[in-house]
Computed example of a mutant assay.
Amino acid sequence: MIKKTIFLILAFSPFFVMATTTTPTEGALSGAQGAATVAGNFLSDFWDFFDNDVPNFFERALSYVFEKIVLFKINAQIESMKLAWSISKNIIESFQVGSKIASAASGLPQDVKAALVDLRLFDGLNIIVQAFIARYVMRFF
């Protein structure tokens, strides 16, 4: 167990990352100047991480969360409209609007009734009443 822990500490320690691959013939600096260059590069990378990478991460995470919230809200609205329409359809069927309009129209004189049927006034009135019922139910959702 101790060997595994030591191996993991050495494997994930930053010592291997800080090693340089350049040789003195390739332009690597030695001595105090090389150490200052390595320290400066480390500090600039450290600053770049907190100045650019962390804000970019939070921006991407926040946009992901807002995207999921908006999609959830849209799907919830669609499903609530389906539910409201099914409820209003049941209410319309229980009110029997069409039969009540037909029974009210039976009391009219025959020529007036024929003219209103030709104008499709009863069908339009039925659609308007159904729309009002559906709108009333959909306001609850």
Rank of each mutant, 00 (worst) to 15 (best):
E67N: 14
E67W: 09
E67P: 02
E67C: 08
K68G: 04
K68D: 06
K68M: 05
I69E: 08
I69P: 02
I69F: 05
I69W: 05
I69R: 08
V70Y: 07
L71S: 13
L71R: 12
F72C: 01
F72W: 06
F72A: 11
K73L: 11
K73W: 11
K73C: 08
I74R: 06
I74W: 01
I74L: 01
N75D: 11
N75I: 03
N75K: 06
A76P: 00
A76Q: 09
Q77M: 07
Q77V: 09
E79I: 06
E79V: 07
S80I: 07
S80A: 11
S80C: 07
K82C: 10
K82V: 12
K82L: 11
L83E: 04
L83A: 10
A84G: 12
A84N: 04
A84P: 01
A84T: 04
A84K: 02
W85C: 08
S86E: 15
S86T: 09
S86P: 00
S86A: 14
S86N: 13
I87S: 03
I87E: 06
K89F: 10
K89N: 14
K89L: 08
K89R: 15
K89H: 13
K89V: 07
K89C: 05
K89G: 09
N90Y: 07
N90Q: 15
N90R: 13
I91P: 00
I91T: 00
I91H: 01
I91Y: 01
I91G: 00
E93N: 11
E93A: 11
E93T: 03
S94H: 10
S94L: 10
F95Q: 12
F95K: 07
F95R: 07
F95Y: 13
F95D: 08
Q96H: 09
Q96S: 11
Q96A: 12
Q96G: 10
V97N: 00
V97S: 01
G98V: 03
S99M: 14
S99P: 07
S99A: 15
S99Q: 15
S99T: 15
S99F: 15
S99R: 15
K100V: 10
K100P: 02
K100S: 11
I101H: 03
I101G: 01
A102K: 13
A102Q: 06
A102S: 12
A102N: 11
A104P: 00
A104L: 07
A105S: 05
A105N: 03
A105Q: 02
A105P: 04
A105W: 01
S106R: 10
G107K: 12
G107M: 11
G107T: 12
L108A: 10
P109L: 02
Q110C: 08
V112P: 03
V112N: 13
K113E: 05
K113S: 07
K113N: 09
K113T: 04
A114P: 02
A114L: 07
A114N: 11
A114E: 11
A115S: 14
L116A: 08
L116H: 04
L116V: 04
L116G: 04
V117W: 05
V117G: 08
V117I: 15
